[in-house]
Structures are given as structure tokens and as C-alpha cells.
């Protein structure tokens, strides 16, 4: 019997990680830690460097410089040992097309020293009905759930999920979220990359917002929003949109975002800002063009917008 000296409270330690593809720095000096039992999210637009960072941690890519340790072990030195204890879901891999769901889970289970019974994993991801279906005949949602099932088959200490709900309909997305929430409750560490703000807000204890290969903010979703926005957002559509300089003079307005006809005004005094907007519309004779006017709490999307000046999906 081998007894671990101490269970490390830091399960992933990333230290000044750099990775370039030609002249592009995909990962530009990234450092962070993930704690045991935490659901950690990397949030950012496509091409921000999330997947590259995740794949270096998973041992699928080599960093140019910097150090990564996973479960207290050096991924560059003992990849096989770490891979026994982590589960990885890759972004859209195609699987062997002519085997069934059950067969591919049995195949992947055989790669590990220990694994969860196939029946349990089928149950967990609602795949029991489709266990005899060939992989090539699965729907997008079923494929995605199978892909997550394969990441969990070895009962991993850390589950890496890369864009797990991309391409799913809202219902399938919610059901996958509840699977991830269950895992989180069971004390599993989850490393999630996503470009869905709602997903990060709902699932993650902590989020690192990443853009152009760098972490631009890192905290719990709530803290990120509180730090950057004491105010709420007023959102509307107007054609033509008011100039930003005019919007900034509205009472209570702290920050404005205009893209085409879509306008967001962040305000610390909703009633006065709102009446200024309505007065403006009246003055320029565009009241009937004013559409979809509503007030909402700030979200991670707003944080991203504020920090980068861009929408995450642009």
C-alpha cells in the first residue's frame, strides 16, 4: 500500500506558460491555480488560447516555456501516470464510427486501471436507451454526451471538459449542466473551457477570462461582475443609434457600448438614465423605432465587453 503524504489542495498549477504558433502567441504568459473540488472555467472567444492552455495541461501539447503540474506531478515527465487519474473531453473528436455506444465505452474503460461500471456511466449521461446505437448514427446531443461519458469512464480526479455543450439545443445543454453540477457536488475537480457566459456563470466557482492568450481577469463570476459593474445595464435597439458622446452625457450613465443599432448603457441610476433615453428618442423623432428596451443585471458577457471592448462571440 502506497500512502500519499498529503492530498494537495492545489490540483493544477500553471506557471508562466507560453506557447507560440509561428508569430502568434497562442498562450502568452499564463499562470493560475485550480483547487481540489473546484469548478474552474476558462472563458473567452474562439482562438483566445483556451483550448491550447487546456491541452498543455492535459499533456497533449508541449509548452514552449513555463511549468505545469497536475495532481502534484509533472505532466511532461509522467504523462501516463497523470492520464490514469484525469478524464479528458476533447472539442469535437469523431469517434470510431462503426462501434456502438456501449462498445466504445468498454473500449475506453480498458485503457484505464480502474473504471466506472458501464451501466452507471450510461445512466449518468442518459445514454442507456442509445447504448446499442452505432456511433455514426448518434445525434449531435448524444455524441456530445458520449464524449463526456468517455471523459468520466475512469472516475477521474479532474475532468477536463472543452466546450462540452457546443452545438447542443438548450434542453440538452441544461441536462448536461446538471450532470456537471452533480459531479461538482461529488467533489470532483472540473476544468471547463467555454465561450458561453451563462455556462460559466452557472457552473464555475472561479472563472479566468482569457483573450489573446492572456488572462485579463480571474475571480468568481459574482465577484467579477461586482468588481466591474456596480451598475445595471439598459439595453435597446435604435436605428440610427445615438452617438456614443451623446449617450455618455446621460445622467447616471457610466459606460456605453454601441454596435450597429444595438446599444448598451451601464447606469448607476436606472430611472434618470431611462428617462434621458426616452427623451432623446422623442427629440430625434424616433420613438417608434425604439425596440427591445429592457433593464438587466450585468453578466459576465458585460464584463468581457468592458474589458476587451468586444463581444465574446464576434
Amino acid at each position: 500500500m502506497k500512502i500519499e503524504k498529503e492530498i494537495p489542495s492545489i490540483v493544477i498549477n500553471v506557471d508562466h506558460l507560453v506557447k507560440s504558433y509561428g508569430v502568434i502567441k497562442a498562450v502568452n504568459d499564463i499562470s493560475f491555480q485550480v483547487l481540489q473540488g473546484e469548478a474552474f472555467g476558462m472563458l473567452g472567444p474562439n482562438g483566445a488560447g483556451k483550448t491550447t492552455t487546456a491541452e498543455i495541461i492535459e499533456g497533449l501539447r508541449q509548452a514552449d516555456s513555463g511549468r505545469v503540474s497536475v495532481l502534484g506531478l509533472d505532466i511532461a515527465r509522467v504523462p501516463a501516470k497523470i492520464k490514469q487519474r484525469i478524464g479528458i473531453q476533447l472539442q469535437a473528436p469523431s469517434l470510431l464510427p462503426l462501434v456502438t455506444v456501449q462498445e466504445i465505452l468498454q473500449l475506453f474503460a480498458s485503457f484505464y486501471k480502474q473504471s466506472i461500471p458501464i451501466d452507471d456511466i450510461l445512466e449518468l449521461l442518459a445514454l442507456r436507451e442509445s447504448r446499442k446505437i452505432l456511433v455514426k448514427n448518434l445525434s449531435g446531443g448524444q455524441q456530445q454526451r458520449l464524449s463526456v461519458a468517455m471523459a468520466l469512464i475512469n472516475n477521474p480526479d479532474i475532468a477536463f471538459l472543452d466546450e462540452p455543450t457546443t452545438g447542443l439545443d438548450p434542453q440538452a445543454r441544461r441536462s448536461l449542466w446538471s450532470v456537471i453540477e452533480d459531479m461538482r457536488k461529488k467533489g470532483k475537480t472540473i476544468f471547463l473551457t467555454t465561450h458561453y457566459m451563462e455556462e460559466a456563470e452557472r457552473l464555475c466557482d472561479r472563472v479566468a477570462i482569457i483573450d489573446h492568450g492572456q488572462i485579463i481577469a480571474m475571480d468568481s463570476p459574482k465577484e467579477l461582475i461586482n468588481t466591474h459593474f456596480k451598475e445595471s445595464a439598459i439595453q435597446f435597439e435604435l436605428e440610427p443609434a445615438p452617438p456614443e458622446v451623446v449617450l455618455q452625457t446621460f445622467p447616471g450613465a457610466t459606460q456605453v457600448m454601441v454596435s450597429n443599432s444595438e446599444v448598451i448603457v451601464y447606469s448607476n441610476n436606472i430611472p434618470t438614465t431611462m428617462s434621458a433615453i426616452l427623451k432623446y428618442a422623442e427629440k430625434v423623432n424616433l420613438t417608434d423605432k425604439l425596440k427591445d428596451l429592457y433593464v438587466r443585471e450585468a453578466t459576465l458577457e458585460d464584463v468581457f465587453l468592458k474589458l476587451t471592448g468586444r463581444k465574446i462571440r464576434e
Binding site: L90, M150, N154
Partner: peptide, 8 residues
Amino acid sequence: KRFGATPL
């Protein structure tokens, strides 16, 4: 790559 993510 998917195989490579396992101890295989």
C-alpha cells in the same frame, strides 16, 4: 488525439 488523452 482522443486515444492520446488516455493512458493507452
